[in-house]
């Protein structure tokens, strides 16, 4: 059993009024302190390479998509948000995605796809905003997901650095 020792209030505290004035002084001072509110749409959230935003596909510098349609991300996705159909390709790889869709309403931004990918083809970008008037509009196809490798560079470097730990 714990006995809580309460301090006897001094007479000064018991008349209460001085303490009220002390409280009023504090709130008055607070009025002139810097604000902490962020005006969101105008002032965007600060992001950096650690931000785990929506997944995006890497387009390599030669213009081809890095994805080889292996399906590992599809398998790793706990929310079943990824759908991949493969097709043959002229390039010196076995296949490339014909259809690569991520249902952004299902995606939980866990980053498992990024971890699963053996080809450094999918990364969590710093894009966070998601809005549409229909559900179908939030199923992103390949065109909407593709980002040049240069824009994803900080994240790619970060993931490489983290992975080198193991």
């Amino acid at each position: 059993m714990v006995v809580v020792q309460r301090r006897e209030l001094t007479f000064w505290e018991r008349i209460y009024l001085p303490e009220i004035f002390r409280g009023l002084a504090i709130t008055f001072k607070k009025m002139f302190e810097p604000r902490v509110t962020r005006q969101y749409p105008e002032e965007a959230l600060p992001t950096n390479e650690v931000t785990r935003g929506q997944p995006r596909l890497v387009v390599k510098d030669d213009g081809n998509i890095a994805c080889v349609s292996c399906g590992l991300c599809e398998a790793a996705c706990p929310a079943y948000a990824i759908t991949i159909d493969s097709q043959e390709t002229e390039r010196f790889i076995e296949r490339e995605p014909e259809r690569f869709e991520i249902d952004m309403l299902r995606c939980i931004l866990c980053g498992f796809c990024e971890e699963a990918c053996p080809k450094e083809a999918i990364f969590m970008s710093d894009e966070l905003e998601l809005a549409n008037t229909t559900r179908q509009g939030l199923v992103y196809d390949m065109k909407q997901l593709e980002r040049p490798a240069s824009t994803l560079k900080p994240r790619i470097d970060y993931v490489r650095r983290i992975n080198d730990r193991w």
């Binding site: 709130t27 607070k30 009025m31 302190e33 810097p34 604000r35 902490v36 509110t37 005006q39």
Partner: peptide, 10 residues
């Protein structure tokens, strides 16, 4: 407004 200022809001 004043309540916001006292709570460091806008």
């Amino acid at each position: 407004k004043i309540s916001a200022w006292m709570q460091l809001r806008i």
